[in-house]
Nucleic acid binder design. Structure first.
Lengths: 187, 187
DNA sequence: TCGCTATGAATGAATG
DNA sequence: CATTCATTCATAGCGA
């Protein structure tokens, strides 16, 4: 694969171990919020606008970029699905099936790259470049965060990109308390 | 990060291997089979279905889960790549032996060399370094274990197992093991 | 007992 | 969305 072009790791012989830790690591508050969104609210398909919204909110708990949020959701979804696949308890269902050969395997398909419309690209600086597609999510304006958190008021943008004119007025911030769930602390 | 708190996260399944603690350790037969697959057969990219197949086969030699097989392959691939990358710059004048000397193989197995894909490696210094014909999974039912004994490395061991067959479809009963998402902060 | 090494496990990042 | 790479954490095993 060509993932090796992700960044220039090689120093040309002089491995200076002072690599700036370029990999984002979620801080505990960030993780708590993200997990709350995913598990508690079932929020799994954030739009790019919502990603920005989430990211903006999480910035007060540590450095974070849009793509981190994007990848976080992608990875979590992928790994949950992967676990369902790998640890799949085969539905023996009372029938001890050792009669292979007759029943063809229809469940062994891998995804055939179905035409997935929305694809979000990122520039070199991490800037989001959304290409509008269709989002298969069931929520339209999920109230992600209350506007009165800590200090996001000054930087709050109305998530109104000039040009992404799909559906007028895509504001995301509404009133809803997020810290209602009580996970993330097994004290 | 949260890896610091990854002490014994996965215990969701039924770990009855209580003598060895949470972390899986391959038994010698398991390790022999895995290495045989990897080195002798060049089998490095198992699909989830094949992982289940391997895991099911290895279960007779000790407790093992799908994720163990999955991680085993992932780690082995990653660390070989890492070694190759390090040896490029390390001022080692001598020759550190990469003992991959496993040449005896493929005795009673139908050949599975679908030499079609050529992965061009990443030349960190601008040169193509390796081009190994991958047996990338295009095969439907790879005969991972041609017989129900281990014959991969050429030595036959009197292994009497239940004769569990591998069908085209993966209908194998596995135990479920998921890690809880309960977070804990880093001290 | 302490330090090192090998390696299982986890996850961010990326590609297709 | 599936798959893979890269990096890191954590720990068992071992030697001094």
């Amino acid at each position: 694969m060509e993932q090796q072009t992700q960044q220039q790791i090689e120093d040309g012989g002089n491995n200076q171990a002072a690599e700036t830790n370029n990999r984002w690591a979620p801080t505990p508050p960030q993780l708590r919020i993200l997990k709350g969104l995913y598990y508690d609210k079932g929020f799994k398909y954030p739009t790019p606008e919502q990603i920005q919204e989430i990211c903006l909110h999480l910035k007060q708990y540590g450095q974070i970029e849009d793509k981190n949020v994007f990848f976080w959701f992608q990875n979590l979804k992928a790994r949950e699905r992967q676990k369902l696949k790998e640890f799949r308890n085969v539905p023996v269902g009372g029938s001890l099936d050792l009669n292979f050969g007759s029943t063809s395997s229809t469940s062994t398909d891998r995804s055939i790259d179905l035409n997935f419309g929305s694809r979000v690209g990122y520039g070199a600086d991490g800037s989001i470049m959304e290409q509008r597609g269709e989002y298969h999510q069931e929520i339209e304006t999920l109230p992600l965060f209350p506007m009165h958190g800590e200090d996001i008021l000054g930087n709050m943008k109305t998530t109104s990109e000039g040009g992404s004119g799909y559906g007028g007025g895509s504001r995301i911030s509404l009133e809803l308390s997020l810290n209602s769930y009580g996970d993330a602390d097994m004290a």
